[in-house]
Design a protein around this nucleic acid. Structure first.
Ligand SMILES: Nc1nc2c(ncn2[C@H]2C[C@H](O)[C@@H](COP(=O)(O)OP(=O)(O)OP(=O)(O)O)O2)c(=O)[nH]1
Ligand SMILES: [Mg+2]
Ligand SMILES: [Mg+2]
Ligand SMILES: [Zn+2]
Length: 517
DNA sequence: GCCGTTTTCGGCCCGACTGTTTTCAGTCG
């Protein structure tokens, strides 16, 4: 679900808490303290309410991992823009150490060593020192570490950020098919954030079950698309393929496939919670299986072959990967209160599509036949209105042609139905981009914002809710305007949009396009 | 720093790979 643009403030505060965590680690303080700040940052990113509101209502400590100390820091940041803890740490830890942490393979210890001896505080200085072989004079650093630092800096420079689901899925499928074809393995699965369908994907994680991991690993690191091997071990390897995308492969014995899939699917926080739960029952959970503490040898698994078995042995029903984020799903699985997720089979049709008449790729006829073949009951075609210059929106004449085209297809494809719609632009002044008599010709009208994203929150909210109140408007599409990894959502009061939706009966689009979601 | 179907104090997930090391720390998944 898209979040209210207001939570930007939450994100900014989460960022400060993450930085406090890094600084605590660099300073060498108790790591659990740092872990707590990081965990608090994560729960704040998950919040649906502005922290300022929670602070005002004295409810900050209701947030998981927020207690007196973190709560005080948050209050100070809200009030003054910074917290005492943060300022003290910034004064105590040399500036620039944080920068060094961005280099892969450089953690708090290495950063400290480099700074203490060479006073290096920027990536550029680090690169220069590595090129001049000044790093290998330092304790615990030799030629290989120096080379790795140079490689990591190069990777940092060409890094493309997190991937969208369709891009990650394409890369993952290519590798899975390659491994299948070359090794004959069929016990292979995509894991990690891609299996959990997170909005964006950091890297790709694949797990394979095999008695002999050697040939699988060998095939993996020889894949033609590989640019760099980050690590190559007996059971786990990491490589970089095109544009800096990382792929991690984990190979385990077939008996451990379920436990390994569970581990590698994550999330990390879900794993930690499950393992903590196991521990309280004197059980040990790792990627090989569930064991009684003290009987942890391979072969002594209580459960390991399937995820269901492992969850069941912990008193839980199987949890869908999409829910494995430590947001209460484990308690829910314990009490049988997991929600029933919407599944692919539930999807009856699509309500937002574009054809080659505007900025889509294919003709309507192809799309309609394909949708029917997919088992859909309907397809709404919602090409653009003319106001958006670049998209070649439909003129009045082409609207007429569209209606005729759809009528013909509907005869051919019945009971499947092509719904004639439009994605009408909501202009900056709130007016819709077709006159009412044209809007009245469509079966459905989806209205959305495509310009003047910088409007003030009140203006944007009025612009959108105004469109929702128009009697001919059926739906609001992409209500936040965000493009993942590209454009932040515009400022809008989503609560007001939702209230207006329930008041007017306007639909709010659940955008399934991987670039928006 | 947080938290509690063992605990209000004493834990906090667990293991693989690398590089540097003569036995392991650091970093990452
Ligand atoms: N138990 C445990 N499992 C971890 C830890 N870190 C990572 N994992 C597991 C769960 C993760 O989902 C899985 C893959 O790690 P990644 O770093 O690729 O994370 P993930 O794919 O969830 O997110 P991403 O989109 O790649 O950033 O490995 C950890 O510290 N402990
Ligand atoms: Mg991943
Ligand atoms: Mg990974
Ligand atoms: Zn649009």
């Amino acid at each position: 679900m898209p979040r209210d643009a207001l939570t930007f403030d939450n994100d900014a505060i989460a960022k400060v808490l993450d930085e406090i965590a890094d600084l605590l680690e660099l300073k060498g303080e108790n790591v659990f303290r740092a872990v707590t700040y990081r965990a608090a940052a994560r729960s704040i990113r998950d919040l649906r309410e502005p922290l300022a509101k929670l602070a005002q209502e004295k409810r900050l400590t209701e947030i998981p991992k927020v207690g007196p100390s973190v709560g005080e820091a948050i209050e100070q940041i809200i009030a003054t823009g910074s917290s005492r803890r943060h300022e003290e740490l910034k004064a105590a830890v040399p500036p620039g150490l944080l920068t060094l942490l961005r280099v892969g393979g450089v953690g708090p210890a290495t950063a400290r060593t480099i700074y203490d001896h060479l006073r290096i505080t920027t990536i550029e200085e680090l690169e220069e020192a590595a090129r001049d072989h000044r790093l290998q004079q330092l304790p615990k650093i030799q030629a290989k570490t120096e080379e790795n630092i140079l490689r990591s800096i190069a990777a940092l420079k060409q890094r493309t950020g997190r991937s969208l689901i369709h891009e990650a899925k394409a890369a993952a499928t290519t590798m899975v098919e390659y491994l299948r074809a070359e090794t004959g393995t069929d016990r292979i699965a995509i894991a990690g954030s891609l299996r959990r369908y997170k909005e964006t994907i950091g890297d790709i994680d694949i797990v394979v079950a095999a008695d002999d991991a050697g040939p699988i690993m060998e095939t993996f690191v020889r894949a033609p698309s590989i640019e760099r091997i980050l690590a190559r071990g007996d059971t786990k390897s990491s490589v970089v393929v095109d544009r800096g995308l990382q792929i991690d492969l984990r190979v385990v014995p077939p008996a451990s496939f379920g436990a390994a899939l569970l581990y590698f699917t994550g999330s990390k926080e879900h794993n930690v919670r499950l393992r903590g739960l196991a521990l309280r029952r004197k059980l040990l959970l790792n990627e090989y299986g569930l064991y009684r503490v003290g009987a942890e040898a391979r072969g002594q698994e209580i459960a390991s072959a399937t995820e269901e078995e492992v969850y069941a042995a912990l008193g839980l029903v199987w949890i869908p990967p999409e829910l494995r984020e430590d947001r209460g799903e484990i308690d829910a699985a314990q009490s049988g209160a997991l929600p029933n997720l919407v599944a692919l089979a539930d999807v009856q049709g699509d309500l937002h599509t574009h054809t080659n008449w505007t900025d889509g790729r294919d003709p309507l006829a192809d799309m309609a036949r394909r949708a029917r073949a997919k088992g859909y009951a309907y397809l709404a075609v919602t090409d653009h209105s003319p106001g958006l210059g670049m998209t070649n929106g439909l003129s009045l004449e082409r609207v007429g042609a569209r209606i005729a085209e759809a009528a013909k297809l509907n005869e051919e494809l019945a009971p499947f139905r092509v719904i004639v719609g439009t994605e009408v632009d909501i202009r900056a002044n709130g007016k819709l981009d077709y006159p009412d008599d044209v809007l009245a010709k469509f079966d459905i009208v989806s209205a959305s914002v495509h310009s003047s994203f910088g409007q003030a929150r009140d203006a944007m909210t009025a612009r959108i809710t105004g469109a929702m109140r128009h009697p001919l408007v059926t739906a609001i599409s992409h209500p936040t305007g965000r493009l993942l990894e590209k454009r932040e959502p515009y400022a809008v009061d989503l609560d007001a949009v939702i209230d207006t939706a329930s008041e007017t009966g306007t639909w709010i689009e659940v955008n399934g396009g991987p670039e928006r979601l």
